[in-house]
């Protein structure tokens, strides 16, 4: 039995995996917030939708009088990397889960996710109300107020979040293959930070792990990280 993400969430993934920029179809690059920028357009903060990223690269090309039909794919990636265009891991997770919960439960998770306390940090609370996506990090998604640990490994579902215990990265499960109650295969998507600082190229990866023991420890071992699987509790 194969469990997949519903169509809206899959459309979001496709929009990042198959970004059409004029005559090219590319994978959205990764965004790195090296300067720790906070304000400004979210498209330059790694928190934009695929459409916003495409629109922005077209706008930049128009300003610089670059013909996007003429440049090569590596040149396009470089152009995007030079202008901080891309998506980061938490941004990707937010948009996928937003689409998932909208379709499954009719909920807008941006209105439900608790980011800051209005009493302890009123300014941050106000900012997070206006700009929720930019303020949702892996840490925010991992908070117990927002997500609960999936205790039974066999009950994990597409849309669940695999969170590194150091809260530095997040993956979203997109497909699960089961035999009876045993999980045999997990496919997930993520936007990993490139090892090389000067890398420019595809930034989103969809990977598959085959399991034999059907437990979290095996998954963690194969992913080379201490992880927890959580599900938004909305």
């Amino acid at each position: 039995m194969t469990l997949n993400l519903p169509s809206l969430a899959q459309n979001v993934i496709d929009s990042y995996l198959k970004m059409r920029v004029n005559n090219k179809v590319i994978v959205c690059p990764y965004f790195t917030n090296i300067e720790n920028a906070r304000a400004g357009l979210r498209v330059f903060l790694g928190k934009a939708t695929a459409k916003e990223i495409v629109d922005e690269v077209k706008f930049i090309a128009q300003k610089k009088q670059i013909d996007l039909n003429e440049i090569s794919e590596p040149e396009l990636y470089k152009l995007m990397a030079d202008h901080n265009l891309g998506i980061d891991c938490s941004g990707l997770a937010v948009y996928i889960t937003q689409a998932l919960y909208k379709e499954k439960k009719g909920i807008n998770i941006l209105k439900k996710i608790k980011i800051a306390s209005p009493w302890l940090n009123p300014w941050r609370y106000l900012v997070s109300k206006l700009r929720p996506v930019e303020n949702i990090s892996v840490r925010v998604l991992a908070k117990d107020k927002n997500s609960l640990k999936v205790k039974n490994f066999s009950e994990i579902l597409p849309g669940d979040l695999i969170i590194q215990d150091n809260l530095r990265h997040i993956y979203i499960i997109t497909e699960i293959e089961k035999e009876v109650d045993q999980i045999k295969k997990i496919t997930y998507i993520h936007a990993p930070r490139p090892k090389d600082k000067d890398y420019f190229g595809p930034g989103i990866k969809e990977q598959t792990i085959f399991l034999e023991k059907n437990n979290l420890e095996e998954l963690a071992e194969k992913m080379n990280h201490e992880i927890t699987i959580k599900r938004l509790n909305f």
Binding site: G40, L41, R42, K47, E52, F59, Q62, L130, R131, E134
Partner: peptide, 21 residues
């Protein structure tokens, strides 16, 4: 829209630039 919501409302302001673009 830019500072409050993090997005562009127009391609470029003022309006005549948006229409040009």
């Amino acid at each position: 829209w830019r500072y409050g919501l993090g997005r562009r409302f127009f391609k470029m302001a003022p309006l005549h630039h948006h229409l040009e673009l």
